[in-house]
């Protein structure tokens, strides 16, 4: 347990002029489920892209299983991504294929397994997310929660060592939300994988994760186990956990003086 699976050291990232991440250092230990939290648009998704090598950090280092992601060539990067699974916000299922073919996709692309074996594997994965009966449906016929479970089955098709979830709880009803949450935890333990969840759904996360990082304005502002987070006195975390409107995170976007703006600057 000494060497974490993913380690970010002083990572800085910017889209052109716009700095997204200023200085992020965090690590994801093997076998654990880690949540990364923060307000909307604080660069959480970018963090996953950095780990997956879809974006390159401007400064600092992203290490996955000991390898510096930024220095990997295309083939090495693709080899690493085969051991990663990423669940996109809205599932990103291939809309021109059935549920079965979606889950079979990574197996067919990356293995030379015979059709019967692929069939068995796909049904096992679908069974794990409780959707074996939906194998012949098209993605358009699924509800949002079901689509995300199918995407989850596809993500674990190759038994990855690292699972990444981009906003897995967004737009789900409470039941689906609970189902996804439990699946994330159970699959992580069953596969012996490590998981990163990027989310702003604090209540659900507190129940399933081992460790939580809070990100604000491109920095890690707080971290801790769920118990520590629940009893924290940190004003930012407190505002987040209790969903307060105003606090360290202001309600208003930075602007000039309200009164001055209304009177046209004459006051």
């Amino acid at each position: 347990m000494s060497d974490p699976l993913v380690r970010l050291e002083n990572v800085r990232f910017a889209y052109g002029e716009r700095t997204i991440l200023r200085d992020i250092s965090l690590s994801i230990p093997r076998g654990k489920v880690v949540a990364i939290m923060g307000g909307s648009g604080c660069g959480k998704t970018t963090l996953l892209r950095l780990i997956g090598g879809q974006e390159k950090a401007v400064g600092g280092q992203v290490r996955v299983d000991g390898q510096d992601v930024a220095t990997l060539g295309r083939d090495a990067l693709y080899a690493m991504r085969r051991r990663m699974g990423m669940l996109f916000q809205f599932g990103a299922l291939f809309t021109d294929m059935t549920v079965f073919d979606n889950v079979a996709f990574p197996l067919r692309e990356h293995t030379e397994l015979p059709a019967e074996l692929i069939n068995d594997l796909v049904l096992m994965k679908l069974h794990a997310v409780g959707l074996r009966g939906a194998a012949r449906l098209m993605p358009g016929e699924l509800s949002g929660g079901m689509a995300r479970r199918v995407a989850l089955a596809r993500t674990i098709a190759l038994d990855p060592m690292l699972l990444m979830y981009d906003e897995p709880f967004t737009g789900l009803d409470p039941i689906s939300l609970g189902v996804i949450g439990q699946l994330i935890r159970r699959l992580n333990d069953a596969l012996g994988a490590s998981s990163v969840i990027v989310t702003h759904d604090i209540q659900e996360s507190l129940q399933i994760v081992d460790y939580i990082y809070f990100i604000s304005e491109g920095r890690v502002v707080a971290e801790g186990t769920p118990d520590e987070i629940r009893h924290t006195t940190d004003p930012f975390v407190h505002q987040f956990v209790h969903a307060e409107v105003d606090g360290p995170v202001p309600f208003h976007y930075p602007s000039d003086d309200y009164a001055a703006a209304l009177t046209g600057g004459k006051a």
Binding site: R81, R82, M86, F88, F94, T95, D96, P106, H110, A151
Partner: peptide, 24 residues
């Protein structure tokens, strides 16, 4: 078709699955 696949992140998902969207 390709544009919609991009909008729904299918291309990115494919890339994350180590399948080149240009080839596939």
């Amino acid at each position: 078709e390709i544009g919609l696949m991009k909008v729904t992140e299918q291309l990115k998902a494919m890339d994350m699955m180590a399948v080149s969207p240009i080839a596939r």
